[in-house]
Design a protein around this nucleic acid. Structure first.
Lengths: 84, 84
DNA sequence: CCCGATTTGTGCGTATGTATC
DNA sequence: AGATACATACGCACAAATCGG
């Protein structure tokens, strides 16, 4: 899949936190099949740029996805869609 | 060109970010001709030592230079002055 | 062909300061 | 007061590409 700017998907004024919106956004792409199992996500820095948010916020979102079992993180390699 | 200690060129307390100062400093050397096209910059680790900053900050500065088209980075080889 | 050194790529964890809600 | 979020910056570890012996 092609990763373009996603800053327009984030509502900074609504009731939902930014990191939840990012987690939901990525989860949606995984469940729709656009992000197939074992495919790699952009790096934390790249995701921060794509969503125009801070890296710390990206990490919070990824933490939620890891807890949910939807992605797995490999030190030094990247973040991958879990095969389930 | 000779690469000596450059830690005195960085102001950690001013309004300009460290990575911006590094990017500007290297850009000046390129535009002055001291760093000719295709010449290789010190490694990220060496630059971090020369400026007495973190490698991550060096990478942030190099990212700006890449975006500006002044340098090109090659995985496993190094960072080179763009030929322009 | 393999091994080691070098270099960039990525992630982990943390800290500080600012601003907003 | 507290939580959220941004931006910056630090140090470290592991992975992958490249090149030389």
């Amino acid at each position: 899949m092609t990763w373009q700017d996603r800053s327009d998907r984030i509502d900074h004024d609504g009731p939902v936190t930014v990191w939840q919106q990012v987690a939901d956004d990525i989860t949606a792409d995984i469940e729709s099949g656009e992000l197939p199992p074992n495919s790699r996500l952009p790096s934390e820095v790249e995701l921060a740029e794509l969503y125009s948010i801070a890296r710390g916020t990206v990490r919070r979102a990824l933490l939620a996805l890891v807890d949910a079992g939807t992605v797995t993180v490999v030190h030094g390699r990247g973040t991958f869609v879990a095969k389930r």
